[in-house]
Write a protein that binds this DNA or RNA. Sequence first.
DNA 1: AATGAATGAGTTTTCATTCAT
DNA 2: TATGAATGAAAACTCATTCAT
Lengths: 188, 188, 188, 188
Amino acid sequence: MRDGRATRQKIHQEALKQFVEKGVAETTVRDLAHAAGIAEGTLYRHYESKDSLVWDLFSSNYKVFAQQLTAIQKRHPNFPARLSATISEFCRFFDDDPMLFRFLMLTQHQALPRVENDDDNPVEVIQKMIVSAMKRGEIAKRSPGLAANLLLGLVLQPAVGLVYGRIKPPLSQYAETITQACLRVLKV
Amino acid sequence: MRDGRATRQKIHQEALKQFVEKGVAETTVRDLAHAAGIAEGTLYRHYESKDSLVWDLFSSNYKVFAQQLTAIQKRHPNFPARLSATISEFCRFFDDDPMLFRFLMLTQHQALPRVENDDDNPVEVIQKMIVSAMKRGEIAKRSPGLAANLLLGLVLQPAVGLVYGRIKPPLSQYAETITQACLRVLKV
Amino acid sequence: MRDGRATRQKIHQEALKQFVEKGVAETTVRDLAHAAGIAEGTLYRHYESKDSLVWDLFSSNYKVFAQQLTAIQKRHPNFPARLSATISEFCRFFDDDPMLFRFLMLTQHQALPRVENDDDNPVEVIQKMIVSAMKRGEIAKRSPGLAANLLLGLVLQPAVGLVYGRIKPPLSQYAETITQACLRVLKV
Amino acid sequence: MRDGRATRQKIHQEALKQFVEKGVAETTVRDLAHAAGIAEGTLYRHYESKDSLVWDLFSSNYKVFAQQLTAIQKRHPNFPARLSATISEFCRFFDDDPMLFRFLMLTQHQALPRVENDDDNPVEVIQKMIVSAMKRGEIAKRSPGLAANLLLGLVLQPAVGLVYGRIKPPLSQYAETITQACLRVLKV
DNA sequence: AATGAATGAGTTTTCATTCAT
DNA sequence: TATGAATGAAAACTCATTCAT
């Protein structure tokens, strides 16, 4: 039914908001139902359990994002172009749907052990990009894990700063600056 | 009469471990009691509630760390020295007591709204260091919030990478690398 | 969907009985649930806490009774008529719902500090009746507090006597006797 | 030891205060210990249990008071004299040790079932006085239970009024008034 | 006698989930 | 599909009492 989709969408939206604001464990099914304007029992018409809602919300979006990053790698031939596009994608994502972005950041540490396929993990995609660039001599060779995390830090932490009001939105305006920072840090 | 100090210490230690491993909400008082080798009720002789244990653990340590960072600022006259010492301090803290460091990272987003005094917040201390360096022309002038978070990202994300096994311990071995990365990113 | 009203009513009824028989503190939520034939958790769908059940039971009924006494004052023009109707009302209340009456007597000393509006307090209503009668010269002038409590004693203590089996029910059969006693005590 | 007595006395005094102010069940052993300036465990050097403290406090004082009332009956030959002395005794008791008086009123409904000997129950003593007066034709014949409770109401309820500030202390100033009220109510 | 930390059984409360309507 | 009352297992918490010192 048409209405089923709308309800599901509403649940998604409000759940993300509540999860981000209060934390997943701190958000009760009652809270979710209230926020989505439905009865408690109704949630179970759309999801098997609260856990499955969380997992569904996480895995589908995490995967899609990872795949978008992977697509970017394929679209661009060399490291600087890839990096720039990748960082723009992170920023665009955050600006488009900050709640979703924050939810993924928030839950990844709990959910990550359940992500089976490496290709569905953005961190892994980044690290592969780094390894590839090292092999091609585009950036200095050293611990790929360290390099990947330095890069990630330069992207993710500004998002945190924005959440706390230390940085003005949108995040995208800093994409170029962040890209340059990455290049300097990882330079040959 | 038994020694209350020792019990308290044991609770601290095991609580940090459990909180980091399973998450705060996922750790029950029973879990804590078992791990600490005490009865459930005993925990309430030392803390008013589970919440107050979490808060006590967070605020006292968060504060102490912020104050250590502040002390470093006073001890060093110019930005490069301050930066280097600050990053070393982060790394040393992580290596010394990874559970505590991870606990602070884990809980800060829930607990930060309750931190009243700016001087007790490491992020604030970093940002002040940045502002001061900009005023003195030691680094390029731009959004202090952005600069502070770029710096923080370069420090904290490697810690995350280490937790996930993408980087080899100890973190301190990368202190110099991270410092150089910061200088490049923030350079005049 | 089951009928919440019926459950609530059942809780009321059994709670009054248990509270009066064993005392409020001595009655556990488990006791209440068993007596009402519901699960422990169900009670919390109807009341926020055991305390709020007690308070709700007290305040709503205390208030209604006070309002009935107030209505009686308005209905009758002079003191003897008011007094007679008031005492009949006390007796009728006791005979109609002894558990409720006893519950109010039992809990008033703990609950009274939380009653905010004077008009919701039967004792206050009685005292106002006394003051009014004194002004009109219907009874002797003296401390209204003393007069009100002499009157109250003549009404409430027989109820206690009945509970202990020292007096035969129903209480209403003594209404006229009690009224005459009050008139003699308060006479001009 | 001399100190043992003093501690016991202090416990008595503070326990009565706490019990009256908050209720017996609502007063914890911790509360008692704090108020009496002793450690929690110390209370068990003086009493077997909290219950036994309550019972000791109740039964010894209830009994003594009943015996004093009994002594009064023997000391005075006729009803008016007995009544007057009895009421004076109630008032004196209340004024002397209001906390103890209130404690006995508060706990009697819970404790009464454990009082074995009728002669140790003030209510019983009053009722016997009434019966005796009826036999001798000093007062009108009717239900002794009702008469006894009318009398008790005239004495006890003013004490309640005094606790609530509706009547000015001391209670003894109203002894004569109350006695007259009783005589009018119970008159031949 | 005194202490106060520790206990553990019992109590209140929470909340994801089920079920009758 | 939707509802919301009811459930019950598990969680947090309380507190009279015990025990090592």
